[in-house]
């Protein structure tokens, strides 16, 4: 589904991603861990198409297409979803209106019939339930005045609405209390099918008790320096990153 080869990206003169390789197949869950500042969010942003970063080397194919040539919105319409580490507030734009437009644009792109107002409302109610989000939230402005936890739930609500093929969730577990973590994580697992894939970026093994990864990768200084199965996350939780970083000679 996603194939990343030797991906390099920079901001200005500063190289942040320094040769990432990653293969994600349908049905898989990948976890990306790594110390602060190692480039996890940058990797997610580059995949999503954030123009702040320049890709200087490497290839990315998504569902057989060259992802790097596609504009941001087409990546989304092809089924790539990024759950933002810091969801953005959009004053004056209600969640309902925002999602109505997003769903409409994505359906149009895929040549599907537009939803009727009633269908859309039913869908919103259903998807709110996935993350136990109060449907009243959808009449509020996007992320404006949402608590940290509500913002993260709202990201997964949008993921549910858009039913992406590949979801990259950037620290969707950060700042959640224990109940919210369970709700968000079970929400994500409910959305899991054999046809879609999930990449979760996280600092905590706890999330991975719910969203069980097939692979765990450690990103350090812009490269994946180690990969393993879910037991790697447990080891990292116990021992930290030192043993890996010391091992790793630039």
């Amino acid at each position: 589904m996603l194939s990343v080869k030797n991906l390099h990206a920079s901001v200005g003169d500063k190289e942040i991603l320094r040769g990432i390789d990653l293969e994600v197949r349908a049905g898989e869950v990948h976890a990306i861990m790594g110390p602060n500042g190692s480039g996890k969010s940058t990797f997610a942003s580059v995949l999503a198409g954030n123009e702040k970063f320049t890709v200087t080397e490497g290839e990315v194919s998504f569902l057989g297409r060259n992802l790097l040539e596609m504009p941001i919105e087409d990546r989304a319409r092809e089924g790539l979803f990024l759950g933002f580490q810091y969801p953005v507030e959009i004053p004056g734009v209600t969640m309902a209106n925002f999602m109505k437009m997003a769903v409409a644009e994505q359906r149009k792109y895929r040549g599907e019939e537009p939803l009727t107002a009633a269908e859309f409302l039913r869908m919103m109610r259903e998807k709110c339930a996935v993350v136990e989000l109060d449907p009243k939230m959808t009449s509020r402005a996007v992320n404006e005045g949402f608590s940290g936890g509500e913002k993260k739930k709202n990201e997964i609500f949008q993921m549910a609405m858009l039913a992406p093929k590949l979801s990259i969730l950037d620290e969707t577990d950060s700042g959640l209390d224990i109940d919210a973590l369970r709700i968000v994580a079970t929400g994500v697992t409910k959305l899991k099918t054999a046809d879609n894939a999930t990449v979760v970026i996280t600092h905590y093994q706890r999330l991975l008790d719910y969203i069980v990864p097939d692979y765990v990768h450690v990103l350090y200084k812009g490269r994946i320096i180690h990969s393993g199965d879910k037991s790697l996350a447990l080891k990292l939780e116990r021992e930290g990153y030192d043993w890996l970083i010391n091992d790793y000679k630039e």
């Binding site: 198409g49 504009p71 941001i72 989304a76 953005v88 959009i90 734009v93 437009m101 402005a141 858009l162």
Partner: peptide, 28 residues
């Protein structure tokens, strides 16, 4: 707000639609 435009485009809105929605929101 270019971050807001990016956010909306990531959900599938065209750049024009994202900009317009932001202005609509601004005067809403």
């Amino acid at each position: 707000d270019s971050d807001a435009v990016l956010y909306m485009r990531q959900r599938g809105l065209s750049e024009d639609a994202a900009r317009r929605l932001q202005i609509e929101g601004f005067v809403a």
